[in-house]
């Protein structure tokens, strides 16, 4: 039963990635990402129910709080500030071709990895789903024009990595937490930079250096 539930969740996660890949409405893209993170949290919870490993419950809670709720809220705030509602242009691939490419990558990943990973079916499925999610996120980064959509693509890729790592419960929790903190930092800076493209330099720098106080310092004596 648990394996079936996990498989259904995998399919739903890949569907949310397809929505991120093709949707033009930025708030909709962020909501799809939020749903995707929620589903990953659910996968972790189902796995916890199956084998009782405490780390999985912790990862589930962390993913729910940070990636399903906090990060989308920040992204929505940024979207309001940059006042861009839709990302209508696609580079290199149209939405349909991008979906086609995703399908090919999914099948190629399955063909390649299922033979390499061996008998552990759950591990093989998790790895294939994770890598497919990563490739779909990468397609978002390279095919969408607006920086904020690119950031959602990056976050989708990162969800793929989380999905893969869920099946390796020995991976130290400390490492998982550090990665999460690091990714939040990257996401925040990228979001501020995408804000910078659509605002004045002064407004942008105010945001960029806010953590440092931004106070005027005394000049170097005798320099040019």
């Amino acid at each position: 039963m648990f394996e079936d539930a996990t498989k259904i969740l995998f399919v739903a996660i890949l569907l949310t990635a397809a929505i991120v890949l093709t949707k033009r409405d930025i708030l909709g893209i962020i909501s799809a990402y939020s749903l995707q993170s929620f589903l990953i949290s659910a996968v972790a919870a189902v796995m916890y129910a199956a084998d009782g490993t405490g780390t999985l419950l912790f990862v589930s809670a962390l993913t729910l709080c940070i990636k399903a709720l906090l990060v989308p809220a920040i992204m929505k705030g940024i979207q309001k500030q940059i006042k861009i509602k839709r990302d209508v242009e696609f580079a290199y691939l149209s939405p349909v071709s991008a979906l086609g490419a995703s399908m090919i990558l999914l099948l190629a990943g399955y063909g390649l990895l299922s033979g390499l990973i061996g008998n552990d079916r759950a591990l093989a499925f998790g790895t294939v789903a994770g890598i497919s999610l990563m490739f779909m996120g990468m397609l978002v980064v390279f095919t969408r024009k607006q920086a904020i959509t690119g950031i959602v693509g990056y976050l989708t890729m990162e969800n793929g990595v989380v999905l893969m790592s869920l099946f390796l419960t020995e991976l130290p929790l400390l490492i998982e937490v550090l990665i999460l903190v690091d990714l939040i930092g990257i996401m925040l800076l990228a979001a501020i930079l995408s804000f910078g493209i659509n605002s004045s330099i002064e407004e942008f720098h105010q945001k960029l250096v806010r953590p440092f106080g931004g106070k005027t310092v005394a000049p170097e004596e005798g320099s040019a």
Binding site: T127, M134, G150, G153, V161, L168, L171, L193, S194, I197
Partner: peptide, 30 residues
């Protein structure tokens, strides 16, 4: 403004690629 563009390109391209590295690490762990 070109600096913002350059920084954004840098962060998105290298971080995107670095996520593949992390997937490689997970495989190495396996």
């Amino acid at each position: 403004r070109e600096n913002i563009d350059a920084a954004l390109k840098y962060i998105l391209l290298t971080s995107t690629a670095m996520l593949f590295s992390f997937a490689g690490l997970i495989l190495m762990f396996m």
